[in-house]
Amino acid sequence: MATGGRRGAAAAPLLVAVAALLLGAAGHLYPGEVCPGMDIRNNLTRLHELENCSVIEGHLQILLMFKTRPEDFRDLSFPKLIMITDYLLLFRVYGLESLKDLFPNLTVIRGSRLFFNYALVIFEMVHLKELGLYNLMNITRGSVRIEKNNELCYLATIDWSRILDSVEDNYIVLNKDDNEECGDICPGTAKGKTNCPATVINGQFVERCWTHSHCQKVCPTICKSHGCTAEGLCCHSECLGNCSQPDDPTKCVACRNFYLDGRCVETCPPPYYHFQDWRCVNFSFCQDLHHKCKNSRRQGCHQYVIHNNKCIPECPSGYTMNSSNLLCTPCLGPCPKVCHLLEGEKTIDSVTSAQELRGCTVINGSLIINIRGGNNLAAELEANLGLIEEISGYLKIRRSYALVSLSFFRKLRLIRGETLEIGNYSFYALDNQNLRQLWDWSKHNLTITQGKLFFHYNPKLCLSEIHKMEEVSGTKGRQERNDIALKTNGDQASCENELLKFSYIRTSFDKI
């Protein structure tokens, strides 16, 4: 039985969820670079991206490699990797027998973001014989899940209580170790020597080791999670996991709180800001991140802002960003909400898709409305799209047979046209069989910064309504002859009103 693990408890099935942008060198404390989270699957090609990484700022997932063999891993080693800020997950990587050479110096898994409450997941690794993470000293947050690894031993010899604050939620089941077939031998045991430290858990006094050649490092209890030197002297209180010299914040392997210019500090002093819960960055760093993602459509890219001495992905609820200094300031009234469309555009074809934009005031991208039916549609669209004030790209209304009016965009005031449909149009209306009105132009103002209007096959939309939009939106004169079809717009509506004058002759039985 794995020490510190839980057996036999019912657990939810383990679901495996399925960018080499360097964020800056980590400095003297770390020998390499800070790398983003990685999802490495199918083959070993991307694994080489770990070569210079000291910190993975995010998670590391290595999974679904069915053609790899043990010899493929023999020359692979990433000794610079010290810390993973989120979680480490391995799933069905064939041929991998140990992690001792792959990650010989991995010391800390912070667990800032977890995989279903777990910071370390080893699942269905069919050839893994031992973990071998002999320098792993601290899992700051989260638990361990090690399950269905039929060859995995050296679990009962690990004292997880020396690595985690609590072992109650560890789930370590259905491994070879369960069948008591392992016969784990710690260093020196074969020669009758006791080389590794022994600890007591559940009444068992057991030597602690990761492999037959690597003991588990056990520091004096007084050192807590700070770690200790090879001689057993406690590291500085700002260290986490390990250090090369005692009581020196510049000799830590990793930091308990924050890293700044080669030393570990309790908090980031001005003019620095907390970033990702582990390091200090200056304003320029946060500003660069903001600008890199301002026009990016890459998933996970955030326009970072500053709030409460932190550089964070977005302002919290009730705050909006001051564009001059990136500071989050309290909103006066309802907060603006910028919604970034991942692929640059979004099609609204149902109430469900409209709900995804609920509360958005600025759309960074283009909207395509293609709704053919739905219950209580006008009210639903207004509830979900009615706060949109600005669209950076274009607005396209296409084959939306259920629409009679666009009044559900009740606050839309600006279409920038930074991206144009077919390279020309910022407003595009095609084949809307029941569209009769755009907006009530006596109450609604709309500016279209650039781009043209396109109207074709809107049989109940009168040309007068379209011409009014040209005047109000500032697009009059931009359109070419064929942009607004004269014969297919309003051709099934009563669009022309003329005053009919009647004269009559009164007659009676005795007068003409």
Rank of each mutant, 00 (worst) to 15 (best):
G318H: 05
H28N: 14
C328E: 01
N257V: 01
S112M: 11
A230T: 05
F205R: 06
L131W: 01
K251A: 02
N179Y: 04
E147M: 14
H274T: 15
L128Y: 00
H28A: 14
G227K: 02
H290C: 01
L326P: 11
K224N: 12
F283M: 06
E49F: 03
L120D: 00
D159C: 02
L240R: 05
E124F: 06
N295L: 09
N43E: 07
L128Q: 04
K176Y: 08
R145K: 02
V121L: 03
S317G: 12
E97G: 13
Q245S: 07
H212G: 06
S112E: 15
G300I: 11
Y118P: 00
H302W: 14
Y319C: 15
S284R: 08
M83D: 02
H236G: 05
C286L: 03
V281I: 07
H127F: 04
E238G: 13
K224E: 10
H307K: 11
T229L: 12
N195S: 07
E231F: 15
H212L: 12
S77G: 07
M83N: 00
C286I: 02
A156D: 01
H302A: 12
V218R: 12
D184C: 09
E49R: 15
D39V: 10
R110G: 11
T68V: 06
S237G: 14
G192R: 05
I109L: 05
T85K: 04
C209F: 03
A230L: 12
T211A: 05
P31V: 12
E180Q: 09
L50D: 00
T329S: 04
R162K: 12
Q61P: 01
C280G: 00
S284T: 06
L289V: 13
L233K: 13
F283I: 13
P271C: 01
D165E: 14
N322R: 14
L240W: 00
R92W: 02
G188Y: 15
Y272A: 03
I306F: 14
P336G: 04
N309S: 10
T267P: 01
H212A: 14
Y259L: 09
Q299R: 09
E49S: 14
D261K: 07
N117P: 06
N175P: 09
K191N: 15
T229E: 04
D165H: 05
L260H: 15
N170P: 04
P270N: 14
R162P: 10
L88C: 13
T140D: 07
V218C: 11
T329I: 05
K100V: 13
D178I: 05
C228S: 02
E181S: 11
F66Q: 08
Q276L: 06
L327D: 15
R113A: 03
E57I: 06
T68I: 04
I172G: 11
K100I: 07
L96W: 02
L102A: 03
D169H: 12
C215I: 04
L90F: 14
L63C: 08
F115T: 05
E71L: 11
Y171I: 11
P316I: 06
I158E: 02
L327K: 15
D177C: 09
N202G: 13
L60Y: 00
D288M: 06
P249W: 03
P246A: 14
E151S: 09
L50I: 09
S112W: 14
I62H: 01
E57G: 04
F103S: 00
E147P: 00
E231P: 15
K80T: 10
T320S: 05
Q204L: 08
P104F: 01
W278Y: 14
R297H: 15
D261T: 05
V108A: 14
S143T: 09
P220S: 04
V144S: 06
P246L: 04
C182M: 05
N325R: 08
Y30D: 03
C234D: 00
N149P: 00
C264F: 01
E147L: 14
S166L: 06
G241W: 02
T199E: 05
L326W: 01
C223P: 01
A156S: 07
K67M: 04
N322Y: 06
W210T: 05
N105L: 02
P313D: 13
T68A: 10
F285W: 14
S54L: 05
R69P: 11
H127S: 15
F275Q: 01
R113F: 05
L88W: 01
Q287I: 07
W160F: 12
H307P: 01
G32L: 14
D288Q: 14
E51C: 15
V305C: 13
L152Q: 03
P246Y: 05
E207R: 12
E314Y: 13
K292W: 07
P104N: 01
E151Q: 05
L164V: 15
Q287H: 15
G183N: 06
L120M: 04
K224T: 10
C53R: 00
C153S: 03
N322Q: 13
E130N: 12
T194R: 09
P249L: 03
T45K: 10
N242H: 07
G192I: 03
M65E: 13
G95Q: 15
E314H: 03
P104K: 02
V55A: 04
E97M: 09
S296M: 10
P330V: 08
G142E: 00
S284H: 05
P79D: 10
R162C: 13
L260C: 01
P249T: 09
L133K: 00
M125T: 14
K191A: 14
P270T: 05
P336K: 02
N52I: 02
K191V: 15
C280K: 01
G318A: 03
T250D: 15
Y154I: 05
T320A: 11
C209G: 10
N195H: 09
C215G: 03
Q299F: 04
A190Y: 04
G232A: 04
N322L: 15
L44T: 11
I56V: 04
L63M: 02
R263C: 02
R46C: 15
Q299C: 09
F66V: 11
T45W: 15
S296I: 09
M65V: 03
C215N: 11
L102F: 15
C252Q: 00
F275Y: 04
G333V: 04
T320D: 11
H236I: 02
G192C: 11
V265L: 05
L81G: 00
E33K: 05
R145V: 11
S112G: 11
E124T: 14
D248T: 02
G188D: 14
L155V: 10
K80I: 05
C53K: 00
